[in-house]
Simulated assay, not measured.
Amino acid sequence: MSAEIVPLPRHDATLDPMLALTAPGMNAVNAVILDRMQSKIPLIPALAGHLISGGGKRLRPMLTLAGAELVGYQGNRHHKLAASVEFIHTATLLHDDVVDGSDLRRGKAAANIIFGNPATVLVGDFLFSRSFELMVEDGSLKVLKILSGASAIIAEGEVDQLTAQRQIETSEERYLAIIGAKTAALFAAASRIAAVVAECDDVKEQALDDYGRNLGIAFQLVDDAIDYDSDAATMGKDRGDDFREGKMTLPVILAYARGTDAERKFWKAAISGHRDGDDALEEAVALIAKYDAVADTRQRARHFAQRAIDALSIFPENRARAAMSEAAQFAVARGY
């Protein structure tokens, strides 16, 4: 990572411009989501609805809608595709909560806690299937290739993260590769397909891909920072979940690299699962603060957010570009 100076985020940045820009389209997207999560098996809409109605930001489908506004698309194909994007994301969340044994999701009991692991996995599979139905209905092989490719990359990223779990020597480069796959790939695909349905040239298509990919990396970096500098009420999940699960996120990677021999011994015991209680978590938080690891993680997030904003420079200044730029600012300034 270069040592360039990255502008500080606007701390008053919000998602409000993005929400206002995409509100009409999101009404149509939500109607598709509600319709396609239905099933004659009552457990399926009950479990899917528990998460879908749980107050998520819906940022990924908003990227598809905002991108369509940015390039002046006048059709409505992007509504079903944005719903497909949200189904992919929701399916991965359901599977993640089972893999991680999570208790909370968006401030509520995780679906696996209420409905059990088998049902949660299977409903995640159902939502993946619905997302592919929506892609096929669109009829574009290019869209299908982009979204199906992203789905495969997400799965690879999750497996890579699983194999890196409790591996204290995980490098920053591998960590960035993991989040580039498990998070940024869907951000990139969600943004890119807007240019595809609008039949834009390759330059605009790549610019939207770059915007989404860099925004996704910034977003995940901040998520990983928040796990060590926020609380459960703010985050909507248990504080220190990543620590207890032995996940090698950037705050830990940096604190371990900068620590003394004694501190590294602590990290090896903690990440391997031998020290994962509340006292150990507090020690981890203190060490991360000592070495500015959260601050530096957020600094790296600002770097990627700026790259996302810069990717939009080929487009004329308009309401959509302003909203998408502010969304990148919000991604790094947020505390939840």
Rank of each mutant, 00 (worst) to 15 (best):
A3H: 13
P7S: 14
P7I: 10
P9L: 07
T14P: 07
A23Y: 13
M26V: 10
V29I: 12
A31F: 11
V32H: 06
V32C: 12
I41Y: 11
L43D: 15
A48L: 09
H50R: 08
S53Q: 14
S53L: 14
G56P: 08
M62N: 08
T64D: 04
A66F: 00
A68V: 07
L70D: 02
H78N: 12
K80P: 00
L81G: 00
S84I: 06
S84Y: 11
V85A: 05
V85N: 07
I88P: 03
H89R: 14
H89D: 05
H89T: 10
T90Q: 10
A91N: 03
A91L: 07
V98C: 05
D100P: 02
S102K: 06
G107L: 09
P118S: 14
A119K: 11
A119Q: 14
A119G: 00
A119Y: 13
L122W: 08
V123Y: 07
D125F: 13
E133Y: 14
E133C: 11
G139C: 04
L144A: 15
K145I: 05
K145M: 13
G149L: 11
I154E: 01
A155K: 11
V159T: 11
Q161N: 09
T163E: 13
R174A: 04
A188I: 04
A190C: 06
A190G: 03
A190V: 03
A194S: 15
D202P: 01
E205L: 11
Q206N: 15
A207C: 08
L208N: 04
D210V: 03
Y211D: 05
G216D: 04
A218F: 09
V222F: 04
D224M: 02
T234A: 13
M235C: 03
G236Q: 00
K237I: 07
D238E: 15
D242I: 12
D242C: 12
K247F: 07
T249P: 01
V252P: 02
A255G: 05
R258V: 00
R264D: 02
W267M: 01
W267A: 02
W267E: 00
G277N: 15
D278W: 11
A280I: 10
A284D: 05
A289Y: 06
Y291D: 04
Y291K: 03
D292A: 06
A293H: 04
D296P: 01
D296T: 10
R298Y: 03
Q299H: 15
S313L: 08
I314S: 07
R319T: 14
R319A: 15
A322W: 09
S325K: 12
S325Q: 14
A328Q: 09
Q329F: 12
V332P: 04
